[in-house]
């Protein structure tokens, strides 16, 4: 075996050990905060794993969502758990569950090993589907096969996924609104030093990188999902820095942003029946422009939904930094 292969294998082994150790720490460790941090690092290691397994598209999404937004959500949960706990209660106690440990451990191991064995014995010669997908992708008007699967071959999945996103947001909003729970992050009176500078630097970079990922999605790793995740992460930062103020007033822009993806996609599904026998087929002419338009709407909706899911409020208002001559709004 050449040296480079040996090094790569060594790296893989380290990666796998790291993943397992972090997952174990996240699940069995004491202290919720510690677990959440372990889980976030686990997400970053997962991003490296996706890149290693030849899926840069997933690596991008995982780094922004798995480590970033999920981590921020879980940290939120830590904060909520501490601030909403009754004073006489031990924070986040963990009782013995109904399943004893001596049973749970072999049971889980058996399930995991059995699953691994099953997955390993699946024939890898592909069968008809991957071959067809790869062949079709070669002549497709989009050069990134993953984007063509998402927006053409399996567009129905993506359409329904947008519906799931919207449903999750509506559900979370109903649950949190009903109880009139206090805001987790009261808006600070005056901004922290240095944070506005970091935002000023990172805002244009993340915005342009998001747009780049959107543009690249048709021929290189990227697309609406990765771009939306990145812009969503930027929105979460704005919220944490107190620049997006949560309100319970319905906002037109907010409502438009969260529904435009599903709306435009559904409209396309209906209209496509005019030129094709099945919904969600692309027309001969202008398919590329159409995909870009739908992807742009998806990107906006994914970003806005992720931010609002993080905040759990009805809508957000921009608060400009107070020291700007433009004044506050």
């Amino acid at each position: 075996m050449p040296v480079s292969d040996l090094l790569a294998s060594g790296f893989d082994v380290l990666l796998c050990i790291g993943l397992l150790w972090l997952a174990w720490q996240a699940i069995t460790g004491t202290g919720l905060f510690r677990s959440v941090v372990m889980f976030m690092v686990f997400g970053l290691m997962m991003a490296v794993t996706w890149a290693r397994l030849g899926s840069p598209d997933l690596a991008l999404a995982e780094a922004a969502i798995g480590a970033g937004i999920t981590g921020a959500l879980l940290l939120n949960a830590c904060r909520a758990a501490v601030s909403e706990m009754r004073s006489d209660e031990q924070p986040l106690r963990d009782r013995p569950s109904g399943v004893p440990k001596w049973l749970a451990l072999p049971l889980s191991l058996a399930a995991g090993v059995g699953l691994a064995w099953l997955m390993h014995s699946i024939p890898r010669d592909g069968g008809p589907t991957p071959e067809a997908a790869i062949k079709a992708a070669e002549t497709h008007f989009l050069d990134n096969p993953i984007t063509s699967v998402l927006l053409d071959f399996r567009a129905i999945d993506t359409l329904l996924e947008m519906a799931v996103l919207l449903l999750a947001l509506v559900g979370a909003r109903v649950l949190l609104d009903q109880r009139r729970l206090p805001a987790l992050y009261p808006v600070p009176d005056h901004p922290m030093p240095m944070l506005p500078s970091l935002l000023a630097m990172i805002t244009p970079v993340l915005l342009l990188t998001g747009l780049y990922l959107f543009w690249a999605g048709s021929h290189a790793p990227g697309g609406a999902f990765q771009a939306g995740a990145l812009l969503g992460a930027l929105g979460v930062m704005y919220q944490l820095a107190g620049r997006f103020t949560p309100t319970h007033e319905p906002g037109t822009v907010n409502a438009l942003l969260i529904t435009v993806g599903l709306g435009l996609f559904s409209l396309f599904a209906c209209l496509s029946l005019l030129w094709a026998p099945a919904p969600l087929s692309h027309p001969e002419q202008g398919a590329y422009a159409l995909v870009l338009l739908i992807e742009f709407a998806l990107m906006l909706s994914i970003a806005a939904t992720l931010v609002l899911l993080f905040v759990g409020s009805r809508s957000l208002q921009l608060r400009r930094s107070t020291n700007h001559p433009g004044g506050r709004q």
């Binding site: 899926s55 598209d57 997933l58 999404a61 995982e62 969502i65 798995g66 937004i69 999920t70 959500l73 879980l74 939120n76 949960a77 909520a80 758990a81 909403e84 706990m85 592909g126 589907t129 991957p130 997908a133 790869i134 992708a137 096969p145 993953i146 063509s148 699967v149 998402l150 071959f153 399996r154 999945d157 993506t158 996924e161 799931v164 996103l165 999750a168 947001l169 559900g171 979370a172 909003r173 649950l175 949190l176 009903q178 109880r179 729970l181 697309g223 999902f225 995740a229 994914i302 939904t305 992720l306 899911l309 993080f310 759990g312």
Partner: peptide, 30 residues
Amino acid sequence: DPVPQAMVLTGIVIAVSLTAFALALIRHFR
């Protein structure tokens, strides 16, 4: 194979939205 990759990409976004929903449920429950 792009099909599982696209499925996982969708799955990652679904997973985060479900996590957010579940956390809202937990807060509500508490």
